[in-house]
Design a protein around this nucleic acid. Sequence first.
DNA 1: GTCTATAACTCGATAGAC
DNA 2: GTCTATCGAGTTATAGAC
Lengths: 193, 193
Amino acid sequence: MPKPTTRDMIEEKADDLFYETGFEATSFADIAKAVGISRGNFYHHFKSKDDILDAVIDRRMAKTKAMLTTWEEDAAPRDRIVSFIRLMIANKAKIMAYGCPVGTLTTELTKLDHDAHSRAADIFGLFQDWLAQQFAALGHGARAQKLALHLLGRSQGVAVMASAFKDEEMLTSEVAALETWLDQLEPLSPVKG
Amino acid sequence: MPKPTTRDMIEEKADDLFYETGFEATSFADIAKAVGISRGNFYHHFKSKDDILDAVIDRRMAKTKAMLTTWEEDAAPRDRIVSFIRLMIANKAKIMAYGCPVGTLTTELTKLDHDAHSRAADIFGLFQDWLAQQFAALGHGARAQKLALHLLGRSQGVAVMASAFKDEEMLTSEVAALETWLDQLEPLSPVKG
DNA sequence: GTCTATAACTCGATAGAC
DNA sequence: GTCTATCGAGTTATAGAC
């Protein structure tokens, strides 16, 4: 494992801080302090705060793609979708504290009327397309994209409410409801098996 | 109708701006410009920016209570719940542009670790309790609060996705799905009728 | 006295020169 | 890596207008 570069460190800490305290509320000084470098050193790596945001979005896109690829190790599309649903359980503590990283960033960028908004929304697009593939494999071809969007929305709702009320019970019971929903979808006519 | 006071005007414009551009991103200069008064003049009406936030939350609580009371003119609990669901249709344009006013504010205040976060979440509490009353009247007493939270979450998810993708079709079809969900809830054993 | 406008202060932000 | 410039934020002080 190679030693992380300064640029990697900046991206990683900026990613965390944008998630935990928001993009606008995070200052260069905050990131510099977290990384342990001086502020001037930033300009060797990033020209502006927007440049860091671009890098953070690229980083999240790459990590999302890698995660989706990992989930494809499950042969059954149904189990792949369950992996997505249970991501909320795996990230329970952070979701209750800060909400969903994708949803809260796109929401903030929408209000700021920021150019990067559509690129942040593209992360949702990655999830949607991947989920739609799984629903199509389950035999829901015609409405695969719609089901994917529905599932994404349900997940976002859980994240918003769980962080608003700091309610773990709500999160776990809604995750269970989503798995029930998945297994009761009709008609179920998979292409194979 | 009495002429609105300067204080009323400040609250109204601050409410709009907090919704459209976010609490932190809205400056006193922005509000002053919208109201048409000077910056310094604020401090005869509010001690600080947090004071304005408190007033805005109070204002939203009051408006929410008034709206819920209006919906109670429908005698049938089912129709009252439909009024809630269709609020997303009535506010379609704003939701696609800025998301849900309650959800986005609580999300922002969570990340800012702001004291007013719990008061903002109380607005969700108003909706939840009111919806739970309607579900109880429909005969779902034991799980009325849970159903209310579920419906709130579904609504939040729709708002997040619709604003992320600027997708009106998603909003309208999910609203229709919610009405179907409502009418297929089991068991249906209303106390009266 | 209540409301309002002007100006100045403090602080922390981005940005950049050395 | 330090040090400074510049800008805009929230805030305060003071003085004029109704």
